[in-house]
């Protein structure tokens, strides 16, 4: 060990491992976001159902998911579904966790579609299904795209929790290399830099998108 000096050799060694782990991080983020985007929409529509038989259970599950920490949900799910690939569990749990937030975003986006749009659909005798498909959802999704993007970035920064359930993402690799070679400083500094390099331009891109959509 060379005291507090940064070991460039170790950094060079760990970089390929970290980049490999980063692919898993990206995969978890993209698929997790997809789950959150689709499931959030389903929840938002279900919560507008006329029957409390639908809305009450949906609300209860949402409350439960939101009031327990992500880490606890991950560990719990990994324990219950011990035969399932941890990466799959990670993606699903992240997706469900974030769906409870994206559903609120969708709800706001749907509420922001003016009443006149619904009335125009009714005046044209359009079915409820077609009203949602052709008019309400396209406008609502446009309203919510920037917020969904911001949740994707937060999810990206929470993927290190997946290391706890042995998903071999970037932080998992950093910790492994760090303990094997006693080079935590190098491994975690580089991991942090990779996150920074990936998420900062993405945030800038999101801000641009928001401006373009006129938010």
């Amino acid at each position: 060990m060379n005291g507090s000096k940064f070991d460039w050799g170790a950094a060079r060694d760990v970089l390929p491992l970290l980049l490999h782990g980063f692919l898993t991080t990206l995969l978890a983020t993209v698929l997790g976001t997809l789950v959150a985007a689709v499931l959030g929409l389903v929840i938002a529509i279900a919560r507008r159902a006329p029957s409390r038989l639908v809305t009450a259970p949906v609300r209860a599950v949402m409350e439960f998911v939101r009031s327990t920490p992500l880490l606890v949900q991950l560990v719990g799910a990994a324990a219950v579904f011990s035969s399932v690939d941890p990466l799959v569990i990670g993606i699903v749990v992240l997706g469900i966790h974030y769906a409870t937030y994206t559903s609120e975003v969708y709800r706001a986006g749907i509420d922001a579609v003016p009443r006149g749009q619904w009335e125009a659909c009714r005046a044209l005798s359009m079915s409820p299904r077609r009203t949602w498909q052709a008019v309400v959802l396209p406008q609502a999704v446009r309203n919510v795209l920037p917020a969904l993007g911001n949740y994707a970035i937060s999810m990206f920064k929470e993927t290190p929790f997946l290391a706890v359930i042995t998903v071999e993402e970037i932080v998992f690799e950093a910790r492994k290399y760090g303990s094997d070679h006693f080079a935590y400083t190098e491994a975690f500094t580089l991991a942090g830099l990779i996150f920074l390099v990936a998420s900062y331009p993405t945030s800038l891109l999101m801000r641009k998108l928001e401006k373009r959509l006129g938010h």
Binding site: Q117, E119, A120, A123, L124, P138, Q139
Partner: peptide, 13 residues
């Protein structure tokens, strides 16, 4: 029956 509204209510999408 068809209706035309004061605020047009065209579909912006």
């Amino acid at each position: 029956i068809g209706m035309v509204f004061q605020q047009f209510n065209l579909f912006p999408n």
